[in-house]
Design a protein around this nucleic acid. Structure first.
Lengths: 152, 152
DNA sequence: TATAATAAGGTCAGGGAAAGTCAGAAACCT
DNA sequence: AGGTTTCTGACTTTCCCTGACCTTATTATA
């Protein structure tokens, strides 16, 4: 269980977010705490706190600069399915999995349901060449999410 | 009864699993212990710790990379998935839906899960011509059931 | 009021550290 | 001999992390 620096910083930020819902951090200061290059903070934000994963960040440079991080509002399943269906090129694996994870975190999907959907939207599961794969992935996902929005 | 290297590594991992239920190993490190090529670890995992045998593996590359191995919790679903995977022509819609219904009635799937799976294995959801459609349907179903065989 | 200095954060290429893949060699059976 | 299993090495892909350089905002100064 090797905890990388990026993992540690991610936890740090997540812990702060759990308390406050919206936080402002100072890049150099955080980098100093972890003894790393300031750009490492950008790396963590870029790979873990993306819009796809349900986070929004904004920042300001110059004197008194900051980076603000907050959770994005989550739309409901039906709207998600509709938005997905509007994509003519389908959806790639990474954004699809991020989308599923967000739905799970928002309580729209159970852990089992999310695991199932992520498994069957993997490249190897669909097993078609691009671009057909992304299209089929999107269609299956839409069908699944719509089925759930009827159920319950 | 010659004990191959692969057998030894298999026992090593099984012993660890017996203690912990879920383990994280480092490929290079394990290879070093056994004085073999790192890819030998992949061979062992690919031939002995397969989903059909009730194991799941996930990994991360790069700095701080790892391979995690755990036992699947619901071997029942795993066996069904293995049987399905053995069908070279895939599975048609009607038998697929019947299979899903049986799993639901047997308490292996919730109503929501079954509804999702039936929706996304419909012809229109997959949207491919035969015979590819039946093949993709089977692959997706296998992936989904295997994922569930792990989850709680 | 311009202008210079200072104090932030942003970007990107690239090196290093893992794990993955796959063809083919080697070993082991019938 | 033929087929199956084991094992390796070369190459690929992914992820982490840094350092050099760039852009923007504030503050001090002429």
């Amino acid at each position: 269980m090797s905890l990388t620096l990026a993992d540690a910083i991610e936890r740090h930020i997540l812990a702060q977010l759990a308390v406050a819902g919206e936080i402002a951090l100072q890049r150099v200061e955080l980098a100093r705490q972890y003894g790393c290059a300031p750009s490492q903070i950008n790396y963590v934000l870029a790979t873990r706190f993306t819009p796809e994963r349900g986070f929004l960040t904004e920042s300001r440079r110059g004197g008194g600069g900051y980076i603000r991080v907050r959770r994005a509002a989550q739309p409901e399943l039906g709207r998600i399915a509709a938005a997905l269906r509007a994509q003519p090129d389908g959806i790639a694996q990474a954004p699809a999995h991020a989308l599923i994870a967000r739905c799970r975190d928002a309580g729209l999907l159970t852990g089992r349901e999310a695991a199932m959907l992520q498994a069957l939207t993997r490249r190897e599961a669909i097993g078609l060449p691009l671009p057909a794969r992304d299209v089929v992935r999107a269609r299956c996902l839409v069908a699944a999410l719509l089925a759930l929005s009827d159920e319950r």
